[in-house]
Write a protein that binds this DNA or RNA. Sequence first.
DNA 1: AATGAATGAGGGTTCATTCAT
DNA 2: AATGAATGAACCCTCATTCAT
Lengths: 233, 233, 233, 233
Amino acid sequence: MQPPNLSSPTSVRQRRKEARPQELLDAALTLFVEKGFAATRIEEVAERAGVSKGTLYLYYPSKQELLKAVVREELTLRIEEAAEEVTHYTGTIANLLSTMLPEWWLRVYDSPAAGVLKLFVTEVRSFPEMAEYYVREVITPNQLLVGNLVQRGIDAGEFKPVDVDSAVHSLVLPMVMLCVHKHSLGACMALPSEINPEVFVRQHMALVVAGLLAAPALTPHATPPSPIAITQK
Amino acid sequence: MQPPNLSSPTSVRQRRKEARPQELLDAALTLFVEKGFAATRIEEVAERAGVSKGTLYLYYPSKQELLKAVVREELTLRIEEAAEEVTHYTGTIANLLSTMLPEWWLRVYDSPAAGVLKLFVTEVRSFPEMAEYYVREVITPNQLLVGNLVQRGIDAGEFKPVDVDSAVHSLVLPMVMLCVHKHSLGACMALPSEINPEVFVRQHMALVVAGLLAAPALTPHATPPSPIAITQK
Amino acid sequence: MQPPNLSSPTSVRQRRKEARPQELLDAALTLFVEKGFAATRIEEVAERAGVSKGTLYLYYPSKQELLKAVVREELTLRIEEAAEEVTHYTGTIANLLSTMLPEWWLRVYDSPAAGVLKLFVTEVRSFPEMAEYYVREVITPNQLLVGNLVQRGIDAGEFKPVDVDSAVHSLVLPMVMLCVHKHSLGACMALPSEINPEVFVRQHMALVVAGLLAAPALTPHATPPSPIAITQK
Amino acid sequence: MQPPNLSSPTSVRQRRKEARPQELLDAALTLFVEKGFAATRIEEVAERAGVSKGTLYLYYPSKQELLKAVVREELTLRIEEAAEEVTHYTGTIANLLSTMLPEWWLRVYDSPAAGVLKLFVTEVRSFPEMAEYYVREVITPNQLLVGNLVQRGIDAGEFKPVDVDSAVHSLVLPMVMLCVHKHSLGACMALPSEINPEVFVRQHMALVVAGLLAAPALTPHATPPSPIAITQK
DNA sequence: AATGAATGAGGGTTCATTCAT
DNA sequence: AATGAATGAACCCTCATTCAT
């Protein structure tokens, strides 16, 4: 009776149903990042995902849960990816820090994860439940991962004996800020001296790594004795 | 102009009246940072400032204008202060970067300005008018100021010939992120490895400055046995 | 009509299909009484009946129609039953009123009909169509039936010449109220002096019948002449 | 400067503000009784009270609280009134029951309290908090009050030794049902044999009181021996 | 006949803003 | 200048109903 369905065993409806959650998360991420959580109307999200308001509620029970799902989903993905890569890495520490880390961050910068970072920074205080998850799943592993590397460098005599946690922040915070910036000021205005992420990320890592190296000549005696008169503006 | 007020030059009422705008801005800043712009009710701001809702509208015509005034107000203050300090500074570049800059940032970190940074990052996209002002009054001068210093270091042969703009970001972005963090994740959760701002800020500046130094010994020959070639693509 | 189903004359599916309407009505009655018409979701009714939302709509075109069907169905059943019993009764009036009527009401009280009464009382004003049916099929026959009995009692000199309609209400209203109460206040709280339906129903009928009896000694001269000082706490 | 305000010391605004709560309660009661709680829109209540939706929320924080306020307010009034009257009463029990009680119930029947009874019966199950209040403030005192009277009658030998609680219900339930009926079926349809509340209430009390009297002739031997053939239609 | 995904109108609630006092 | 009562637009969420499968 029915023509043998060579086309697709899963109906259009079925296919859409399976794609819905992701479509909704994508739409939500874009809008939340762009306009802020509070200023984004549920209806806009639904519209952008091509469904009606009611449909969204079939998948996410509230606006807040939608937000949490957006953050969780993207971060989880990114974390798994990172863990994967780092685990498989074999090479020297300095190489890892000054080569692989920049590559990884540039991918994050170009991905929706950058938006999630902005979103997270913007909204955590209103949803402290997100904080715990984030710290447990993102911050702590990352701190351990990178901290571990730095510590190895120190132990090997390669790096100066610095405060490890602070060093990790030196490596990480600027990258986070770069991502946040991209979706904040960077999204509404061209800066006079535009940041070139590639150049910046690579140079920054190189600078910090260079600073970490246990070179004997590092004492700042090289600073020129001539006083500087700073005449700004 | 005013008829000489024989009783008291500034009556209590008069004094309060003059203090109003500032009291309102203080209240608004605190609440906007804490709860977010959208989640803060005008009435709360008024209450916290000890006046009624209607009174607030006598000073600021709308919630948005109040936000802009908060940002502008605090930034202007901070900028003036900074310009002041830097102008009077006499000393070496490395000293300036690794001594004075940390001090200045630590003061910012402890001041309401840190909250304004968070607020700004959070809300610019919804109020692009703020962006222009901010870029003109804050970013650009700062970029020039610090860029100038780095450039001098390079010109003097003290620093390696790096990308100046990126170097400025290496010096500035982590500090901005630190401030943002303080009022974001930092405000709702204790991290496992708590950031110590003082240690971090000073060490970070030292690291970057060290990285910038054109010391001959900086060539990575010091790197342990297996040489890592940091090949900056 | 159907090809003779050799396996079983009524397949499981068939049997279920025929039972559907009743199962739906049962589910609906329970929920409507318990949570109120408005607060009951169609989906809950379907769930409780073990079918999907869509299926319910195959049997009842709207929520309102479902309500009307619930009321109609239960009342019709009860009316037929009552008419049946009363028709076959042979005995004295007083006996009928003080023996049979209590039994009948106790059965109503224990049946879903009690819930229907509550439901009806609660919702008629929103669905006046139900009123006409109810008055025609329930109130009027009942009024005639009981009224007839009372009238005969009066005509026979057994009862005092009272207002017949009012007497009927004296006999009926408390029982209706008892049923309504069961599913209203009685369903959410234990009273300090719990009503015992059996005791109450029988005693009430006895009291009213006694009051109706044309006993000469009934004139309230028996009332003690001493005035009562009511000192209620 | 101001003309001596002979007119009114309280401004129109002030006067309205004080009247608001009552106006809102009146509007709410009418609509809740008429259409049911769920089917009444907050906006309708506001409109009927001559204010906007938002204004209602200045006085009652939610629809549910409005409902509770309606019930509480009217019941409290009625209870105080009743307590007042009964306390001052001096007279015989039978007189009290067959004279004063009918008068009191007729006033209730004609007052908004009748609507509150209907409302209460209709909605308690959804708001069990109301139940406790009602039982404590209305049911229990009433049960004690009337039960006390009946008990005295029994103790004085005036009444037969009946179950007191049931007797109270015989006196009270029909009246409650009458009130409920007024705003239920009675509000949407004229009955064939319309209830005359005055006739009914008085006769009912008389009947029950008569039934309670310990007259010797009350044994139902008077029932005619002739069997009744009930031929209903 | 049965399902359950999808819809969208509807209603409770909030809150920036206005304005009479 | 200050108040706070009043407004009404806006938005989240629910749920009866529809319809493709």
